[in-house]
Each structure stands twice: as structure tokens, then as C-alpha cells.
Amino acid sequence: MTPIEKVEGRAIPFGLKNVDTDVIIPAHWLKTTTREGMGRGAFESLRADPDNLFDSPVFKGAPILIAGDNFGCGSSREHAAWALGDLGIRVVIAPSYSDIFSGNAVKNGILPVVLPQPAIDRLMEVAQTDPVHVDLDTQTVTTPFQDRFTFEIDPFRKMCLLEGLDEISLTEKSDAAIGAYEAQLDADRPWMRPAIA
């Protein structure tokens, strides 16, 4: 996973509330076998409009997305995070997220920043004309106009994102403990192994 520390660039002033994962990536994209290329399906229904934000010359490929309350609600599909990542988004800024979505985002190297609505409103304004700067290390979002908003993030998630650590790499550090558990299980309850090989 690519580590995140500082992300600077244009922020898509999207701002919609209750955007569910069906809007982020429609169900028919679930029939894929790779994580890549899913950006093409991201926000498909909205992008049917030729004047949509995502494909505008200014915001195409922007690394930051500004959204409204309860972003990523609905189905638990991880494809939503893959689609955003494939679209080039590294940071989402919103007042709140569905739990499952924010977990999936972090697992896929996307930083979900939580800021109160007034901060979102101000960033939406700035984003029209100027870039936004997100610094995970100092937990701040800043603009060229001296706006400075600080955000909270779970320390474990922060470490994973800063170091680009995926959960598997972390768990692999517990390899010896897992091996010991397996050996003990084989000794205590050998019948737990499926009976036919």
C-alpha cells in the first residue's frame, strides 16, 4: 500500500449527503475479478451527465474528495474504496462516514478525514478555485488562505496509513504466536482438522 503523509492538490467539491456505496460503484461492477479499472464505474450514474465534476478538466484526477454526511452508507462492498482509489482519490473529507466504509477506505490506503460541516462548507468554497493541503502527520487540512482545520484519527489507523502498512503485514509480525496457537490446537483438539484430506 502506498503510504500517505501529505496530499496536496485539487479537491472535488462534491458535498452530497448520504452518498451510498451503490452510487459510488453500482452493483453490476461487483462482477469483476480485479480491483483495478474500477474507477471507470465510480459515480457512474452521476458521470452520465457530460458536465459532471469528476470528468471536468479542472477536477479530473484530483486526489481529494469533499463529501457530505454519512458518506459510503449502504452495502458493505469494498469495491467502493477500490473505485475511489482507482479514480486517483487519496483523501476523502466529510462530516461523517459509515463505519464499514471508513474501515474499507483505510484498508485500501485512503484517508477518511472527519471535519465539522462549517469546515466542509469553507473547503467547498476554496476548492472551486484553489488546491487543498492535507497533512496526516500533523492531522491538519490547510488552504492557501491560511485556513487550518485539525482532525482526529484513530492512532492505529494513522500508523497504518503513514507507514503504508496493510493489516496483513501487521499480522505477519504475529507469525510465531499464530504458529504456537496452531501447535497447541493440534495437541489439545486434533479432531478440529477436517477429517478428510
Partner: peptide, 16 residues
């Protein structure tokens, strides 16, 4: 579980 967790279980036989 989600797909990342499927991968996690395949690789480590555990979940956090």
C-alpha cells in the same frame, strides 16, 4: 467478512 479480510484470512488464518 469483506474481500480484504478474505485475503487476510487466506494469508494468516486469523482476523483482528
Amino acid at each position: 467478512i469483506g474481500t480484504s479480510e478474505v485475503e487476510h484470512v487466506l494469508a494468516t488464518q486469523t482476523l483482528l
